[in-house]
């Protein structure tokens, strides 16, 4: 289990190589990468800034990761989330899950993304030129969360 919050970019291949090193028990690895798009609601985007709450961010991501490990049989989980100034096509977030079989890895990766989108303290500001606006939370993200709620 690992969580990293960083300004710099990440290398997916290097991360996968590192988590597989020296072991042959993993049967499935799922990776999700979130990227900065160049449009939002039809308008061009030239830059994005991600603000976060140092301290709480790491705690919230670790709690979400612990919950995923409690629900599914994971051999490895990794969350890397960037903050600071980004531009279109830049990588924002990486989620990796590994398990003996694909079902748990797929489900856990989706769960991690659904939770961190609206429960980890990040805020996106995107814009063009010297203009920028804070991205509104999407209702779709809240409904995505609801499906994981236990009865």
């Amino acid at each position: 289990m690992a969580v990293r919050v960083q300004a710099g970019d990440f290398d997916i291949s290097a991360e996968l190589a590192a988590l597989r090193a020296g072991r042959a028990d993993i049967g499935a690895i799922v990776t999700f990468t979130g990227l900065v798009r160049d449009t939002a609601k039809g308008a061009p985007i030239e830059h994005m800034t991600l603000e976060h709450y140092p301290g709480m961010t790491e705690k919230a991501l670790s709690a979400i990761e612990a919950e995923a490990n409690a629900r599914w049989d994971l051999q490895v989980s990794l969350i890397i989330h960037r903050y600071g100034a980004l531009k279109p096509a830049d990588q924002i977030v990486l989620v990796v899950t590994a398990s003996p079989h694909r079902g748990d890895a797929f489900a856990a990766a989706e769960f991690l993304m659904d939770y961190l989108k609206s429960r980890a303290p990040f805020w996106k500001k995107e814009g063009r030129g010297n203009q920028g606006h804070w991205v509104d939370a999407r209702d779709a993200d809240e409904s995505a969360l609801a499906r994981w709620t236990k009865d």
Partner: peptide, 10 residues
Amino acid sequence: VAFFPPMTGG
């Protein structure tokens, strides 16, 4: 105590 808008990570 921290105050902020709904979160938009990911």
